[in-house]
Nucleic acid binder design. Sequence first.
DNA 1: TCCTAAACCTGCATTTTCGCATGTTTATTA
DNA 2: TAATAAACATGCGAAAATGCAGGTTTAGGA
Lengths: 234, 234
Amino acid sequence: MKNRIECNVCTNENCFIKQGCFGEWLNKISSQKNQLWYKKGSYIFREGEPIYGIYFIQHGGIKVVTTSLHGREQIVRLAKEGQILGHRGLRKTYYYFNSVAIMDSLVCFVENELFYEACMNCPEFAINLIFFYASELRRAELRVKYQAQMNIREKVAMAFIYIYEAFGMNPETKMLNISLTRQDIADIAGTTAEQVTRQLSNFESEKLIARNKREIIFLNIKELENIIGDYKIE
Amino acid sequence: MKNRIECNVCTNENCFIKQGCFGEWLNKISSQKNQLWYKKGSYIFREGEPIYGIYFIQHGGIKVVTTSLHGREQIVRLAKEGQILGHRGLRKTYYYFNSVAIMDSLVCFVENELFYEACMNCPEFAINLIFFYASELRRAELRVKYQAQMNIREKVAMAFIYIYEAFGMNPETKMLNISLTRQDIADIAGTTAEQVTRQLSNFESEKLIARNKREIIFLNIKELENIIGDYKIE
DNA sequence: TCCTAAACCTGCATTTTCGCATGTTTATTA
DNA sequence: TAATAAACATGCGAAAATGCAGGTTTAGGA
């Protein structure tokens, strides 16, 4: 457990709440927020649970995942520090998705009422939130297209680019800053763990990646991007 | 061509702009908006074109469609009167999607500057816009899951439910209020026109639908919904 | 260090989806 | 009304994706 971090001393300058929410309102949120610590693998919220407010990730990593259909799951989003969480549920009563920590994570929780007031009273924050949603919507709808039209090779390449963009890699070792199982990658790509392994073998023999134990090393990101062609997200 | 319709006399009470934008600001928008008439099949905007503002559908129907990948397209959204159009592009410079009239349509256009000002000055409108985005994002991300996990039968059933919810049907004839080609339906379902035809044959022999010429008659919507199980959007 | 469970890899048979080809029906226009 | 083009239906072989089985590697705890 760590000590409580107030917004005005938080070093997370890119935190979403700070994009347009200042002074009095930031202080209000800071003093009224809850701060919660989640161990890797534990749920922040589950589908069907009541929605009381919204989360901001102070530290760590989180996956938003749908419940299964035909025995499969789908990872809808990866989020890291500074990012907002639970924003799909605004004005709704119950969550539609599950949210699971993929690293030990510290999360700030703000109640609905206070959050709505902040939106109404900080127009700059509201408009930034609108821009953020527009961007997320664009990405999600592109992903609909990708899921509908890409073949497995492209989907798996896309999953790696997505993970790379969400969490980045260590510039020295060229390893991803996050450790995901083949199943997690499959749940992002929209396929099965076996297919991920097969594509990894292909990519390895093409010298696009290398494998060290279970870690993946990126040898040629440009070429991985070429696999998905013009079809990059954003 | 029809005459210009001002917002205060427009009978479209469910128009998005009227959800939180009143008095002075509604008048401002009404007097500064452009009104444009599009014939069925013509483009409202195309991918790559510069974004100057946002649209509201006064009358008609529109499909938002992505450019092709492997020779396929994907219909991302169907929209009818009262709905907003072009909102994915907020703060961006160029459109990411194409927008095509699927009936003769009358559309109101509001410039970016004015729209942003309205958002900043009508907090109720801004928050309704936020709620709308949250809802659209939820839908889009569910569709990612559906595209990834459903089989063809489920996808085609889902496409019909989607069209039905977007445009409704004539309660007498049980025909959809919109005429779409097999290819359009395939572009919603995320498959090919041949597969749509095959599923239609199946649904027909199961007495879920009937076919009269090229029109589709809904005999049993409940059962169509059952095909997609708990997995209804919204 | 050893042991055990979980994760991973790969071959192969099965299932699903695709896409062409061909013939038919429907809508449109002269 | 006839001619023509577009849209639709359907069989079938090809291609892609899936899922199981069996063996291997790795991580983590005793």
